[in-house]
Design a protein around this nucleic acid. Structure first.
Lengths: 153, 153
DNA sequence: ATTGAATATTTAGATGACCAAAAAATAGAG
DNA sequence: CTCTATTTTTTGGTCATCTAAATATTCAAT
């Protein structure tokens, strides 16, 4: 009786677990900076989309973040309550809900603009080179593209 | 009046957003396979830890997955309800709760062992080479190590 | 015009992740 | 030995994510 090889099930061998861990840990790193703006990380993502495009429907925001409208609806309501966005049915097609930045939502952009550099400042670590990070980012984006394509099927 | 540069806030420039997207998308890819075993992705992670170590305290599981006990407690209760693990106070230190696999929990390992290869089979894509994935995995692990170190401070 | 399919959003219910605080047990200092 | 501090887990509350189902609007075909 030979023992079966279960090494494929080791956490260290998998890609998915470190992705899951890295995602949660990076979100945590953002937290103190986002607390200062009184927003959460997913809310920050939605705002980043809107800072680029001003007015979008719920689904349009979702397609950029790979989120469905049922996740976004309550999140957007919270952003509306904070006075950062408005939600109104589109006149030309009342199925759609247009999300727009308020003046306050737009103003928050100026307070957020320093966040990326503040994070990078925490990471002047010699063990990972700039070049390695860029390569990593390239593969990561490819991976996201592949995964999202394979979801559509 | 010159316009401020907000390009640092573009989603594409950041590392955190694609990590977040990749994590969620990979979890989704696992879903149909895990549904067949009647477990969720975080439950699968806990089981993978236990398949390697048989019996651990709540905190010991948490340290491997970067999760706190307040996240694990309800999750472990659900695994207990499914009959996959047992939870009992340690005799030598009754503050600790020992989590052990049941016979069923151990048996599930045999049904899970094919999951990794089934996933890889979906990904015979030419746009990413094996070598690139290995490099990616290396950097990802380094990143997780850095992030978790920086949390401890 | 009316019916039926497709599209867009919302709601409901379950799980999970996080913080803060409480509860329970142990360890340590005097 | 007792009191306080520490460790470990649980509880309660909020937000986020997912599936499935409900609602409302638009479009297409007859």
């Amino acid at each position: 009786m030979t023992k079966k090889d279960y090494s494929s099930l080791y956490l260290e061998k998998q890609l998915c677990f470190p992705l899951y861990a890295a995602s949660r840990l990076t979100t945590k790193i953002y937290e103190p900076l986002l607390n200062a703006l009184d927003i959460t990380y997913p809310q920050y993502l939605v705002l980043m989309v809107l800072w680029q495009e001003e007015e979008l429907t719920v689904n349009e925001i979702g397609s950029r973040l790979f989120l469905e409208s049922n996740t976004l609806t309550p999140l957007l309501k919270r952003l509306e309550q904070k006075g950062l966005v408005t939600r109104q049915r589109a006149a030309e097609d009342e199925r759609k809900v247009l999300i727009s930045l308020t003046k306050e939502g737009n103003a928050l952009k100026r307070r957020a603009v320093n966040i990326p550099e503040q994070l990078i400042a925490n990471f002047n670590d010699e063990s990972i080179t700039e070049k390695e990070i860029l390569q990593f980012q390239t593969t990561l984006k490819k991976l996201v593209g592949l995964l999202s394509d394979s979801m559509k099927k």
